[in-house]
Computed example of a mutant assay.
Amino acid sequence: MTNLALFDLDHTLIPTDSDHEWGRFIVKLGIVDAETYLRDIDRFYADYKRGQLDIHAYLETILAPLAHRPRAQLAAWHEQFMHEVIKPALTPVALELVRKHQEAGDLCCIVTATNEFITRPIADAFGVEMLIACEVETTDGQPHSPFTGRGTGTPSYREGKIVRVESWLASLGKTWADFEHSYFYSDSHNDIPLLEKVTDPIATNPDATLLAHAQAKGWRIFDLFQPS
């Protein structure tokens, strides 16, 4: 029986927050007003860490700078972002963790609350084809058309991650019961709903709230970036 391996992204597979770093990157490029935008993304990031993020308001803010810009320009900026920010943060131990599950024949998926524009190239860098991320609306619903600056569909945040994973599995004709083991690696207490759903929850570089929860539940805990 094939196993299922799910991975959170930010502070789990990479030791940074790609959404927050993208915000700082576009401030550096001069695309947005620095003072206002940095204040907003810092406030939302603090809300996220407290488990109080309004995901819809956040998406409106983080996606607005993408609206109606040529996709070729956005792709060029993202390539620069990958080169300057993300690729230097990739670690051999994280790449090896994903590769280990792939070589075992596990069905692998990155499940993140960060939007798909930011995370699709990062998932590609890990060699993971299946990505569940917050979806970005386009002007005519076609994948390569200009963005509207709004999200669409069910955000893959907290319980929304369960909804999105189960929808994906259903599209494959599968349910949780089809897997002997289902793994989920995450650092965040916001992911406790999905961690509770799998057979093998793994608190990875956990925040303080998740660490306490994992210890109480007897879950596996490890620091991906400082392996013992």
Rank of each mutant, 00 (worst) to 15 (best):
V128M: 10
E60R: 15
D140V: 03
Y48N: 03
E166T: 11
V111T: 06
E103A: 09
E84N: 11
F126H: 05
E129N: 02
D124N: 09
Q52C: 12
R164N: 14
A133C: 12
V165H: 07
F126N: 03
L29R: 15
I122D: 00
A89C: 04
P70M: 06
Q52M: 11
W168K: 00
R39L: 13
F117C: 10
S167M: 08
Y45P: 09
Q80E: 07
V32F: 07
M130Y: 08
V85T: 11
A133L: 09
A104C: 06
A113Q: 02
V93N: 13
E96R: 13
H144Q: 07
V32N: 04
H83C: 03
T114A: 15
H56D: 08
V93W: 05
A75W: 09
A72I: 06
T154G: 05
T112E: 11
Q52F: 10
A89M: 00
E135L: 10
A75H: 14
G141H: 11
V128T: 07
L38W: 02
V98M: 08
L95T: 05
S167L: 09
T139S: 08
E79Q: 15
I162R: 02
K100Q: 14
A57W: 14
I41V: 10
C109V: 15
D54W: 02
H56V: 15
D47P: 00
M130T: 15
T139H: 04
D124A: 12
L29G: 01
A64C: 08
L107E: 02
E135M: 10
I55C: 04
A46F: 08
I62E: 14
